[in-house]
């Protein structure tokens, strides 16, 4: 049995491949830890109740709402935020597809949308349009860019199928 808190406690988090040391209270959500303690403001605070999807991040590759996740429970897990998606300064193919399809207006929900799409394609590399719509249903876009978002995800899936080589371990 391991007990922490209610005062701050020191934990190590694996965020985008880097080990990060933070001192947090057990009540600290993963979202607040990312934004306030680590300065990673890509994940957005909107409803704070698991209704909107703007705070979506990946934990061990699975899309979760970071506003309903306690940071203290993420020790030993692999956390991926939007800041960890691009490689060597170039956009991830999904991000590129969002740009190409104008899949955003204000952009506030976009980090969550892209990560939800990433988790969807990891699990289902060649989704149908209906599967994309369902897979993206946990992320609201108040600008109503849904059409572009669905097209962006479908395009990224097609490009992924073209670029990934058989046996590379990547989905195709």
């Amino acid at each position: 049995m391991i007990e922490h808190g209610p005062q701050k406690t020191a934990i190590m988090l694996d965020v985008n491949g880097l080990t990060q040391y933070v001192e947090i209270e057990p009540r600290r959500t993963l979202l607040d830890t990312l934004r306030i303690d680590l300065g990673l403001t890509g994940a957005k605070l909107v409803c704070n109740m698991g209704n909107c999807g703007a705070c979506t991040v990946l934990v061990d590759g699975v899309a979760v709402y970071s506003c309903l996740t306690l940071a203290i429970e993420c020790e030993g897990k692999r956390i991926t935020t939007i800041e960890g998606l691009s490689e060597e300064g170039s956009l991830h193919p999904l991000q590129q597809a969002f740009v190409q399809h104008d899949a955003l207006q204000c952009g506030f929900c976009t980090p969550g949308q892209v990560l939800a799409a990433h988790a969807l394609l990891e699990r289902n590399p060649q989704p149908t349009e209906a599967e994309v719509v369902e897979g993206m249903s946990g992320n609201l876009c108040r600008c109503g860019a849904y059409r572009g978002i669905v097209e962006a995800v479908l395009t990224a899936a097609k490009e992924q199928a073209v670029t990934s080589k058989p046996g590379s371990g990547k989905t195709a």
Partner: peptide, 15 residues
Amino acid sequence: MQPFIHIDIASAEEV
């Protein structure tokens, strides 16, 4: 959220 103590346990029986 008010402060709380967080407890990790290894099996349901401990709860």
